[in-house]
C-alpha cells in the first residue's frame, strides 16, 4: 500500500447515524420494549412449564419464526451486505465514508420472474479516486457471493461523482474483465482484505 493515502482526510458519517433496520415497535407494545424489568415478572408461566402439552414448547410466537411471513430482499438488506466492506485505504467502512448510500440502491425482487435485479451506485470520496474500480469490484464480488443467482447485479459509479466514470463502469460490468481481474492474486488479496470486515 502506498505511504500517502490519496484522500487523507475524507468526511465520515457517524456509525450510529447510518441507516439500519430499526426494530419497529412490535404489535404488543404494552410490554414490547421493556426487557429487563418485566420480562420475568409478566411472563409468569415458567420455562419448563409442562412438556406434556400436545404442541410441546410452542416455537415462538414472534414473526421471525413464521415461514408464512416472507421477508423480501430489500434495499436495506443490500446496504447491510455492502456497507461494512472496508475501504482499501482507510480503516473505515464504505458506509461510514458514504461511498455506498441507501438511496443509491435499487432492488427489484420478483421471485416469480426469471430475473430480479439489484443496482448499486457508488460515490467515490474524490472524483479522481483511482481505487473506484477496486471498490466497485469489491461490492460486486460481495453481492454475487451473498445473493441467490436469480439476481442480476449491476454496480456503477454514481453520475457526476467521478472523472472517468464511463471507463470504470465498463470495467465493472464486463463479465470477462471481471473474471480476469479475479484471477489476479494481488487484487484478490486486496479484495479479501476489504471483505474481511463484512458483518
Amino acid at each position: 500500500m502506498s505511504a500517502d493515502p490519496l484522500n487523507a482526510n475524507p468526511t465520515i458519517l457517524s456509525a450510529s447515524d447510518l441507516p439500519t433496520r430499526r426494530r419497529r415497535p412490535s404489535s404488543h407494545t404494552n410490554i414490547g420494549a421493556f426487557s429487563a424489568v418485566f420480562s420475568k415478572g409478566i411472563n409468569v408461566s415458567s420455562p419448563s412449564s409442562d412438556p406434556f402439552a400436545t404442541s410441546p414448547i410452542s416455537l415462538s410466537d414472534s414473526d421471525s419464526e413464521d415461514d408464512a411471513i416472507i421477508d423480501r430482499i430489500d434495499e436495506q438488506e443490500i446496504y447491510d451486505l455492502i456497507s461494512s466492506i472496508s475501504d482499501p485505504e482507510h480503516p473505515l467502512s464504505l458506509g461510514e465514508l458514504a461511498v455506498v448510500n441507501l438511496p443509491d440502491i435499487d432492488v427489484r425482487d420478483a421471485p416469480t420472474a426469471p430475473f430480479s435485479t439489484v443496482l448499486v451506485q457508488i460515490t467515490p470520496t474524490i472524483t479522481h479516486c483511482s481505487l473506484a474500480t477496486v471498490i466497485g469490484l469489491g461490492v460486486r464480488v460481495r453481492l454475487e457471493q451473498a445473493l441467490p443467482p436469480r439476481f442480476r447485479v449491476d454496480v456503477r459509479i454514481k453520475e457526476g461523482t467521478h472523472s472517468t466514470a464511463d471507463q470504470v463502469n465498463k470495467q465493472l460490468n464486463d463479465k470477462e474483465r471481471v473474471a480476469a481481474a479475479l484471477e489476479n492474486g494481488t487484487l484478490m488479496g486486496v479484495l479479501n482484505k476489504m471483505l474481511e470486515t463484512c458483518r
Partner: peptide, 24 residues
C-alpha cells in the same frame, strides 16, 4: 445457494456468513 434465498432474513444472514467462511 438455496439458503441465500430463504424467506427469512435472519436465516439468509447466517447463510451469507456461512458461505463467506467456506469461500475463504
Amino acid at each position: 445457494i438455496i439458503a441465500l434465498d430463504d424467506p427469512k432474513r435472519h436465516v439468509r444472514k447466517e447463510a451469507v456468513d456461512c458461505r463467506a467462511r467456506w469461500l475463504r
